[in-house]
Computed example of a mutant assay.
Amino acid sequence: MRWDSLFDDLAGQLDDELAVDDDAVRIEAERLRRGRLMLRERLVALCGDADAPGPLVVELVDGTTWRLRVRSIGKDWLQADSGTPGGREVVVPLDAIAAIAMTQTQIDWSLDDVAVREPRLLDRLTVSFLLRDLCRRRAAVIVRTRTGSWTGTVDRVGRDHLDLAVHEPGSPRRSRSIEQIRVIVLAEVVVVERAA
């Protein structure tokens, strides 16, 4: 009888130690997973879900702060509705983000262990590809850089720069209305906003 209770006690201690070891392994695995997270992955977790918690407060490298509702994320950019009147569409290169002020709910969502999903075409599209589309559409844009902002039409997009035909906001791109062609290095672009 005493042997049975001893064996039961030893078995219980072993189960407890194994459970503690399993918990420690799970905690360490989660710590490693979170340590490998990139900002893009955290933003993807907050994007495109109707239940996702509110807009993000994003501080950019030029010192401006934007309230953005992220709609889609590419390889190195995000597309969002801005908090400006009319909620204009903006494109922000991920390298232009200095910080994001998140609520605790947004933090929790962004750290969730999201199931691996199939790669999408959007995940491979770069900001230069997106800007080439704006160029083809001849869309009027406001290009904000670290040093200023210009309104115009994107004439062409190279691998690391774009040509912006600068003209008055609201006017169509016409040769006589172009003030200058500004060649802007893509690394300096902070926000590209669709002009009204």
Results as ranks from 00 to 15, higher is better:
I27R: 14
V90Q: 02
P172M: 11
P85E: 00
D9P: 01
A140H: 09
D160S: 13
H161D: 14
V116C: 02
A195N: 12
D123R: 01
G74M: 02
L78A: 07
S82G: 06
V91F: 12
Q180P: 01
V141N: 04
L46I: 09
H161K: 08
D133K: 15
V143T: 08
T151C: 15
L186A: 08
P85A: 00
R182C: 06
A24F: 10
L162C: 07
R2F: 09
R40I: 11
V141C: 01
A45Y: 03
L39S: 02
R31Q: 12
A29H: 13
E188T: 14
A196N: 04
R36N: 11
E41P: 07
D51C: 03
V20P: 03
D108T: 12
D9L: 08
L111A: 09
R173I: 02
R144G: 01
P172K: 11
W66S: 00
D49T: 07
L39G: 02
E28D: 13
L46A: 07
L43Y: 06
A98G: 01
R156G: 12
M1R: 05
Q13E: 14
G86D: 01
A139T: 15
D51S: 13
A195R: 05
T145A: 08
R71A: 10
L134M: 14
H161V: 03
V189R: 08
G48A: 11
D76W: 06
V91K: 03
T147L: 04
G152Q: 12
R42I: 04
P93E: 05
A24E: 15
R159E: 15
G54M: 00
L37C: 01
S110W: 04
G87Y: 01
V154L: 15
L186W: 07
R88S: 11
A24T: 14
V92L: 06
T145K: 09
D123G: 05
I178Y: 07
E188C: 06
R88W: 02
T147G: 00
I142C: 11
L37R: 10
A101V: 06
P53F: 00
